[in-house]
Design a protein around this nucleic acid. Structure first.
Length: 930
RNA sequence: GGGCGAAUAGCUCAGUUGGUUAGAGCGCCUGCCUUACACGCAGGAAGUCGGGGGUUCGAGUCCCUCUUCGCCCACCA
């Protein structure tokens, strides 16, 4: 056991981790070894002996390129997956992409626009073929970019929302909901994007506060032009579609006018004054113009009063009437939009109409008015409320189980405050418009027979009418992209087929996402999970913050303040990016980067990875690669205090990391109140691991054992074994965060077989039983700290060897005596141990917590009065604190009401401080003479 | 308009049921190229925990209030 291997030269190990050449190679080794793939047969749900742990990746848009949001989101998922994989779970991370209806169609439309074409020039079939080709050529690039990040997805299960398999799932879902009466076609006002030429869901029409104007317009009473009723609107152009003026039934000002008619200016049609409690008598004039075809509320008023609903703004946002056309009692078509306005853009028309009203004296006044305007979430165009036929999903019944699951703790949302937002949304949920007037997406599986009028909803393509065998035509519209992604947790596993994957991995475990798609996606997945699988899709929703710049602006392409993760990886490597993100990611807190200073932004990660690498370099040089003894087999007596200390610190670090990561799943299907707030604190986990390897292993243990490693012999073997063990533990703890550098180092550790991979290694567990030495080493550390402080205080450069005297407190005698040499090495002092402080010497002093004292004789360089003053000051501060402490301990309320362990801790502290006070006071007395 | 969250060192943030002398990273100051690491080592400065009030033996932590930011939701035209 005393044989020593010759130190391995570090010539082949550069001072920095060579990420550029290593990362790709390591990633390929993982893939070759099949380290990413989960086995159905391992899952405890399929007879295996491992708990499944599944994450489905939020599918990026198929045409997207990697940005910081993806980098952040996927790093967090990878950390969780690697952690559970090492912890022994059958870990599955399902990757995939979303066909992203509007987004992708917009991209391709822009492409063909460069050729001077629109999608209508190309035609539907050709356009779809073109888009398929575009996706085949460029799509999925983002998944390859994720490899550079180190993402350990199971690529063999890569899914795509528009694949034949997932398309089957979409049809199945649509047909089932239709059969239950939860999918229906409705004729109502929806949000319409005049640029994308499609309807949008409520969520896709985002509110933006806008400084607009409120126009007050007077509508003269029919046959009584002297009298008029004034209405207010922010959108004068819609007045052409007015079919009534509503007043509150109890509003005395207008009671006599109810039932009479006014003449709509410009359009010149007569419209009635109607009573409706929708009107708020305190707002404006208390009279509201009703435009049922271009306002969702007015639509409801129109329905209540059975009013006509003329459309006066076309699909492209220009003025003009559309069918169904309104007719008068003689059956003639009513023309509301005058020739001069027809074809005009709605905003130009607004100006023109205002001018016309002004000219005719009908414009009463214009006020500035702040209000919220809805805009298309894809192209930012102001959305036009528009009457049309659309398909809807009835959401109330779907929302109920989704609400119950969060309320009763089957699902937790982290951080918890989002649960309120989730609950509120589901409580007030409205039906979901799922049809889109696009070409790119899942065609709605409904076929119409013009012959007999039959409507057929089918899982399979319908070629002829089942009733009359006549020709059928399929609904022209496609489904909202989110109608396919809401099925993602089970459609990716094979649903509607009852596949082995589905049985082994559904329900999944954690869903990681930004809060921006909580409604779009996360909540809808929960609803669909219950509806189609009868079970929640996951038990934890982890909502992280988003990446912002130093001005706290969201990183975005349009602002040009984004950071390309691939740039960061190219400059610093994937590990520094990952470490910086994880360490800087408070629970649900946004993370700030400076896009103009990547160096600074990612310094924490880069510095850390280099530090880790150099610890490894030291170890490989001084420990070598020949096998070491297992720490558990080493006699306890042979472990030094430092050895015991670092082993205890490792146990503590493991416990901290485990606590920060938390339970992987609720113990009993429901999250208990206690469990709910545990875990998922990835930054705490990163910090615990960092502190262990840097501030404990490198700063103290490594320095403490350098001498032992230098001298061949039994003790060297012990030190080698403990160092290798402690570093091995550190690498395992850190692997989920910085997988590449840890893998590279781990494989070089002593005694490692060629085919062993850290990615598949076991997560560490505490070894326990370290004994007293660990605590005793703390005393050594405090002596070292004290001497270092004296050096700093008196400006004694490290190059200068010092002699120092240690005067131990009674209990510390044996420890400080045997460790004197070590203390000397760590402080570059020649340390001698004395019974009592030598008299008559000019010296600098420090008193340790236990009353031990360290002294540096500095004859001639010390100002006695100054040193005396310093000590007196220190004594005064200590006495003040001690006084407060004793007062507290004397307080009966404190002793009786505070927790016993707190009182005990205070008593212990009181003993220590007293000892220190004694010592300090004695010192002051000898030095200052009073 | 309603709801939620935040305010702690120069900057970005931790601080779990109230309980040591409030912490980290980056930045800053001083001294060191000590044969693993200057992307480093050692030491140091820096916070009346946004203002005010309250509960308590004890408050960064709980309650009230004010101020300033941010987010989500919403049919006042």
């Amino acid at each position: 056991m005393s044989t020593t291997s010759p130190p391995t030269p570090t010539a082949d190990l550069p001072p920095q981790f060579d990420f550029a050449s290593m990362e790709r190679e390591i990633y390929e080794r993982w893939e070759r070894a099949g380290a990413f793939s989960a086995a159905v047969t391992d899952s405890s749900r399929s007879g295996g002996d491992r708990e499944p742990f599944t994450i489905v990746m939020p599918p990026p848009n198929v045409t997207a390129i990697l940005h910081m949001g993806h980098g952040l989101d996927n790093t967090l998922q990878d950390v969780l997956i690697r952690w559970r994989r090492m912890a022994g779970d059958d870990a599955l991370w399902v990757p995939g992409t979303d066909h992203a209806g509007i987004a992708t169609q917009n991209v391709v439309e822009k492409l063909i626009a460069k050729e001077g074409l629109t999608r209508y020039d190309v035609g539907r079939d050709a356009f779809v073929r073109r888009t398929v080709r575009f996706v085949e050529e460029t799509g999925g690039a983002i998944l390859n970019q994720l490899r550079a990040l180190g993402a350990s997805c199971d690529w063999s299960r890569t899914a795509y929302t528009l694949s034949p398999e997932l398309s089957r799932a979409v049809r199945e879902a649509f047909v089932r909901l239709y059969e239950k009466g939860l999918v229906y076609r409705g004729h109502r006002v929806i949000h319409w994007c005049p640029r994308c030429l499609t309807s949008l869901s409520d969520e896709e029409a985002e509110f933006h506060d806008t400084n607009g104007k409120l126009y007050h317009i007077s509508y003269p009473l029919s046959g009584d032009p002297e009298r008029a009723i004034v209405v207010a609107t922010t959108r004068p152009e819609t007045m052409l579609g007015d079919v009534a003026v509503a007043v509150h039934p109890d509003d005395d000002r207008y009671r006599d006018l109810i039932g009479r008619t006014v003449v709509l200016p410009i359009a010149n049609v007569e419209i009635p004054i109607i009573p409706d409690s929708y009107t708020d008598p305190t707002f404006g004039s208390g009279a509201v113009k009703i435009t049922p075809a271009h306002d969702a509320n007015d639509f409801e008023v129109g329905q209540r009063h059975d009013l006509p609903m003329p459309v006066v703004i076309t699909a492209t946002g220009t003025m003009g009437e559309e069918s169904p056309r309104e007719t008068n009692e003689r059956g003639e078509t009513i023309e509301r939009v005058p020739e001069s306005l027809r074809g005009l853009d709605r905003f130009e028309a607004r100006e023109k109409i205002v001018d016309m009203l002004k000219a005719s004296g009908r414009l009463v006044k214009v006020e500035p008015h702040q209000h919220a305007v809805r805009r298309c979430y894809r192209c930012d165009t102001v959305v036009e409320p528009r009457l049309s036929d659309q398909w809807f999903v009835k959401m109330k019944p779907l929302a109920e189980p989704a609400l119950a699951a969060v309320r009763d703790g089957r699902i937790r949302i982290v951080p918890e405050r989002w649960e309120g937002v989730y609950v509120h949304w589901l409580d007030t949920i409205r039906d979901w418009n799922i049809s889109r007037q696009l070409w790119w997406g899942h065609r709605i599986p409904v076929w119409y027979c013009d012959g007999c009028g039959r409507e057929t909803v089918s899982r399979d393509d319908v070629l002829t009418c089942p009733s009359c065998s006549g020709p059928v035509r399929q609904d022209e519209d496609v489904l909202d992209t989110w109608f396919s992604s809401w099925l993602w947790p089970f459609s990716t596993l094979g649903w509607p087929k009852d596949t082995p994957d589905l049985r082994a991995f559904y329900p999944t475990d954690v869903l990681v996402s930004g809060p921006d798609i909580l409604f779009f996606w996360v909540a809808r997945m929960i609803m669909s999970g219950f509806e189609f699988m009868g079970e929640a899709p996951y038990h934890t929703v982890y909502l992280h913050g988003i990446a912002r710049d130093t001005k706290h602006r969201k990183m975005s392409k349009s602002l040009g303040n984004g950071i390309d993760p691939l740039d960061v990886i190219a400059r610093f490597g994937a590990d520094p990016l990952r470490y910086t993100v994880v360490a800087g990611m408070g629970l649900g807190v946004d993370i700030i980067f400076d896009p103009d200073d990547l160096e600074k932004s990612f310094a924490p990660g880069r510095n850390f990875v280099t530090k880790l690498w150099n610890i490894g370099r030291f170890l490989l040089t001084n420990v070598g690669t020949s096998p070491v003894q297992a720490v558990s087999e080493i006699d306890r007596e042979r472990l030094s205090r430092a050895d015991q200390w670092i082993l205890a610190r490792l146990d503590a670090a493991i416990a901290e990391c485990d606590a920060a990561l938390g339970p992987a799943r609720p113990v009993n299907r429901h999250w208990t109140l206690g469990e709910r707030t545990m875990g998922m604190r990835l930054n705490d986990y990163a910090e615990a691991a960092r502190r262990f390897v840097w501030n404990e292993l490198a700063d103290w243990y490594l320095e403490a054992i350098k001498a032992r490693l230098a001298d061949a012999g039994d003790d060297r073997e012990v030190a080698r074994a403990v160092l290798a063990h402690a570093f091995d533990g550190a690498l395992r703890l850190l692997h989920p965060i910085v997988p590449f550098v840890t893998e590279a180092l781990w494989q070089r550790l002593p005694g490692r077989a060629d085919d062993e991979l850290l990615i598949s290694a076991r997560w560490p567990t505490a070894s326990g039983g370290q004994g007293r030495g660990a605590d005793e080493f703390e005393l050594v550390r405090s002596a070292v700290d004290a001497l270092r402080q004296l050096r700093g205080e008196y400006n004694i450069t490290p190059g200068k060897q010092l002699s120092a005297i240690v005067v131990p407190a009674p209990n510390a005698r044996s420890v400080l005596t045997t460790e004197a040499a070590l203390i000397g090495r760590l402080t570059r002092c020649t340390v001698s141990v004395a019974e009592a402080a030598p008299r008559g010497e000019t010296a600098a002093h420090q008193v340790l917590a236990d009353g031990s004292e360290v002294i540096v004789p500095l004859a001639g360089t010390i100002d006695v009065a100054k040193e005396c003053a310093r000590l007196q000051q220190e004594l005064a501060a200590l006495e003040k604190q001690l006084g407060g402490l004793r007062q507290r301990l004397a307080n009966e309320n404190f002793v009786s009401r505070a927790k016993p362990e707190i009182v005990d801790a205070e008593r212990q502290k009181e003993r220590e401080w007293s000892a220190r006070r004694e010592q300090l006071a004695a010192k002051v007395k000898t030095l200052c003479g009073n």
